[in-house]
């Protein structure tokens, strides 16, 4: 089967003052449909940079990133944005909900950006996904009325509402206590199974890694190991 994400010899360099920081030093990686992958590694190992390449919010200095067969370096800004809208979902470390919108509106937002749906259809999809993350009762509440775990559930709902191929999560539990973090990971796992959506998340928490079925470890911008975990078994 063709991989949904394909990185070939990806190098990413940032100028930092006079020196150039090489965040990724030639990473090659293939991820298939429906995988549940953790990217691990110490701080500064290039986890987030790798995720940004996959998430099309950044393009490589050298090498190729292909999302569903499409090379990101060849796309214009607006095309990349469109790609993100249609094929990707994002879950952020700091949740990043729009503060002035309520829960339902935050979840509905990507559907509105995508367009082409009636109000009824949008409402149905929002209800469905909010029900799946277990927040039906909080539907009309604003982000500041929700707990951290609830906010991240909203973010997950927002990421999944358009039915993306890939969901990217950058340290999704870093700002949550461990129990809540567990719940979020359980939810992500469940959704991954039910919807066959590819999940790629970065973390440096070993308990989180334990949920992944495949663990890619980065050290100094290079993949040091790429292995199936016990959970995969």
């Amino acid at each position: 089967m063709k991989p949904i994400v394909e990185l070939m010899d990806v190098v990413k360099e940032f100028p930092l003052g006079k020196v150039t920081v090489r965040a990724l030093r030639g990473v090659s990686l293939q991820i298939g449909r429906g995988e549940f992958v953790a990217i691990a590694g110490p701080s500064g190992s290039g986890k987030t940079t790798l995720l940004n390449q996959v998430g099309c919010v950044d393009t490589p200095t050298r090498g190729t990133v292909r999302i569903d067969g499409q090379s990101t370096s060849e796309l214009a800004e607006s095309a990349l944005t469109k790609l993100r809208l249609h094929k990707l979902g994002f879950i952020f470390q700091t949740f990043n909900l729009v503060p002035v919108l309520d829960l339902a509106q935050n979840v509905e937002l990507p559907l509105l950006l995508k367009g082409g749906l009636t109000r009824g259809e949008r409402d149905r999809r929002v209800r469905e996904i909010v029900d799946q993350v277990g927040l039906t009762e909080q539907l009309g509440q604003r982000p500041n009325e929700l707990s951290g775990g609830q906010r991240q559930r909203v973010a997950i709902a927002r990421a999944l509402v358009t039915g993306p191929n890939i969901v990217l999560a950058d340290e999704p539990t870093a700002n949550l206590d461990s129990a809540t973090g567990e719940q979020i990971l359980d939810l992500m796992e469940r959704l991954n199974r039910d919807q066959e959506t590819t999940f790629i998340f970065s973390t440096h928490d070993s308990r989180v890694m334990a949920h992944a079925r495949r663990l890619v470890t980065l050290v100094d911008g290079k993949i040091s190991s790429d292995e199936a975990t016990e959970a995969a078994a």
Partner: peptide, 9 residues
């Protein structure tokens, strides 16, 4: 965030 989740400029 808006840009990341697919909002155009």
């Amino acid at each position: 965030t808006l840009r990341a989740i697919g909002a155009q400029r």
